[in-house]
Amino acid sequence: MKKQEVICYIAMVIISLFVLVPIILITIGTFTPRLELYKWPRGLIPSRFTSDSFISFAQSYGVMNGLKNSITVAVLTVIFSLLIGIPAGYSLSRFKFKGKSLFTVGVLTTRMFPIAILAVPLVKIYMGLGIYDSILGVAFIHTIFAFPFAILISHSIFASVPREFEEVAMVLGCSRLGAFRRTTLPLVAPGIAAIAIFAFIISWNEVFAATLLTLHNRTLPALIVARLEATTLDFLFASAFFMLVPCLVFIFIIRKRLLRMWGIILR
């Protein structure tokens, strides 16, 4: 091995450890007996592993409801983002039309604003609409986070499927919709699934807007923020671990597409 390669590998190991060690630590922390977290001196590895913290977190007041809310909001966000993003992405990839570049610029500007901050004026608007402190309201603002991604990514996914597929299908006897369903859709399905996962993660993780726009119908992150000042380490560790696991699973599923998806967003 060349000297340069050795240096590269050392750097990779150090950076990997920097990323992974904290995740391992929180996992250990979650399965450490509760009292040991407050003991001193204490060792890195606990005397025994237990799921007590985890169970008591799951059973504490509001958590199950928060979980239900988080999942509902995330699923709604996925549905809204796909319903809004896919047709728009398709339109951008298949047609030339007046205002196309204006529309693209509009989509891109959303990422030039700290959108979460829009939650503040939305409080007022939601109160007017009667959707303050509602699942739907949170899902709407999460959709604002997610749908530009959905548009840009689906645009590029559709662009990667030649339009000739649909055209051949139409010549051979399909309607426009039928041609889409029989040719393009099966080919883009995995990409669409990746968009869905992405939207789910965005919503599942979002804290600020969810905190501001809810009082009782809190999502998990909002619930944790609300409890921050009056809670114990074991509750926090377990909650972090609980929030973390689905994200790890999801990112593992879409790992192959990560790079391409982000490459698209940069343009």
Binding site: E164, F165, E167, M170, V171, S175, P186
Partner: peptide, 20 residues
């Protein structure tokens, strides 16, 4: 008429053979 009702066939430069 839409393409489907014209009773014709087409071969494209890229062939557009469905990969799936």
């Amino acid at each position: 008429l839409p393409p489907a009702q014209r009773g014709l066939s087409m071969v494209f430069q890229s062939y557009a053979v469905f990969p799936h």
